[in-house]
Structure formats: structure tokens, C-alpha cells
Simulated scan of single mutants.
Amino acid sequence: MIDGPPEREDEEQERVHPGRLRPTSGAALAGWALVGLVGGWLLHPLAERVRDTAPIVTWAQPLALLLVAAILGATAYLTWREVHVHQQRLDPRRAVNRLVLARACALVGALMAGGYFGYALSWTGVDTELADQRLSRSLIAGLAGSAVVITALLLERACRVRSDGDAV
């Protein structure tokens, strides 16, 4: 009998605990943030070449991201209170919906934060009329995108339930 390659720890965990989801990895978040950073940084020179003007960041963008972060934060708090304080089980569909929402918002939030930080970075050292405004609003939008990531990860953590084998 020929033995195959040794099993990885992930496969072993999957056999022991089927159907268990892992938390969103820091590597995935960093990867999406890096893609956003490069994209945001490239947006400024490409837009000026194509349209002769770079996009303006209005207050609507950071406010929309802050609204998403507030909704995620409230959902995380209510979920945590329901699962961990009141010791109630979530309906499986609701739990999966919240986990999918949390993961999607964490990844998109990282992309948006990186994009706005990259766009802000492209305006450093530029001396034009709206450069300071674009730089400051992009930084604020990047921080709001980071708030989306943090609250999404809090929601994901709030959905965690202890299994019988977990220690206190």
C-alpha cells in the first residue's frame, strides 16, 4: 500500500469538526487592503491622464462607510448579547447570514480602506488647489473603511459559539 502525503492539520480539523468556519484571516484582509492601496494610488495619475482631472472625495463616502460601520456594530452587539449573555441559539439561517455579512464587509472594508489610503498617499506632496481637501477626506474615508473592518470582525466574533470541547 502506498502512503500519500501526510495530512495537513486543516484537513484533520475538518474531519474532527465538520462544518466549522474559520475566522477571516489577517492575510486575506491584508491582501485586499494592499490591492486597494495600489488601486487607490494608481487612480489619481490614471484619472488625470484619461479625464484631465482626478476624482473628488465628498463627505458622502466617509459618511456612508461610517453608517455601515454603525449598523455592523449594532448588529454585533445585539448578536453578542443574544448568544453570550442570554445564552440563546441563533436560527441557523440568521447565523449564516450574519457570518456572510461580516466576512463580506470585512473584506470589502479592507479594500475600501486601502483604496482611500492609497488615494490619499497619491496626493502627498502635491501642491494644487484641492490636493489638501482630497488628502484629508481620503484619510477620513480610509479610517471609516477601517471602522467597517473592525465592526465586521466584531460581528463575526459575536457569532462564535463554544463547542462542548472548548475550555472556559
Score class of each variant (00 low, 15 high):
residue 105 C to F: 00
residue 41 W to M: 11
residue 61 Q to V: 15
residue 30 A to D: 12
residue 141 A to D: 08
residue 106 A to T: 01
residue 54 A to G: 03
residue 124 T to A: 09
residue 140 I to E: 07
residue 76 A to P: 02
residue 112 M to E: 02
residue 1 M to K: 12
residue 83 V to R: 02
residue 14 E to L: 14
residue 42 L to S: 05
residue 98 R to T: 01
residue 50 V to D: 02
residue 78 L to H: 11
residue 21 L to C: 09
residue 88 Q to N: 04
residue 146 S to M: 15
residue 27 A to Y: 13
residue 38 V to R: 13
residue 110 A to V: 11
residue 69 A to I: 03
residue 49 R to W: 02
residue 124 T to H: 10
residue 153 L to H: 08
residue 79 T to G: 12
residue 104 A to H: 00
residue 2 I to K: 05
residue 159 C to K: 05
residue 1 M to P: 09
residue 63 L to Y: 03
residue 100 V to L: 15
residue 16 V to L: 15
residue 69 A to Y: 01
residue 42 L to H: 04
residue 77 Y to C: 02
residue 127 D to K: 10
residue 59 W to Q: 07
residue 120 A to H: 03
residue 37 L to I: 12
residue 36 G to Q: 04
residue 123 W to P: 09
residue 127 D to A: 11
residue 16 V to M: 13
residue 28 A to I: 14
residue 70 A to F: 04
residue 165 G to T: 10
residue 9 E to V: 14
residue 67 L to V: 12
residue 163 S to F: 14
residue 85 V to I: 09
residue 35 V to F: 10
residue 63 L to K: 05
residue 106 A to W: 00
residue 130 L to G: 01
residue 136 S to D: 09
residue 117 F to R: 00
residue 10 D to G: 15
residue 78 L to C: 06
residue 152 A to F: 11
residue 154 L to N: 03
residue 137 R to W: 04
residue 162 R to F: 08
residue 23 P to K: 08
residue 84 H to A: 13
residue 37 L to D: 06
residue 151 T to Y: 05
residue 167 A to R: 12
residue 49 R to E: 02
residue 56 I to C: 02
residue 99 L to I: 13
residue 147 A to M: 11
residue 7 E to T: 10
residue 128 T to N: 12
residue 55 P to A: 04
residue 102 A to L: 08
residue 34 L to H: 07
residue 17 H to A: 08
residue 101 L to T: 02
residue 139 L to Y: 14
residue 111 L to K: 01
residue 2 I to Q: 11
residue 160 R to H: 15
residue 18 P to G: 06
residue 159 C to D: 12
residue 155 L to N: 03
residue 57 V to W: 02
residue 158 A to C: 08
residue 136 S to E: 13
residue 63 L to Q: 05
residue 50 V to Y: 06
residue 99 L to N: 07
residue 103 R to L: 06
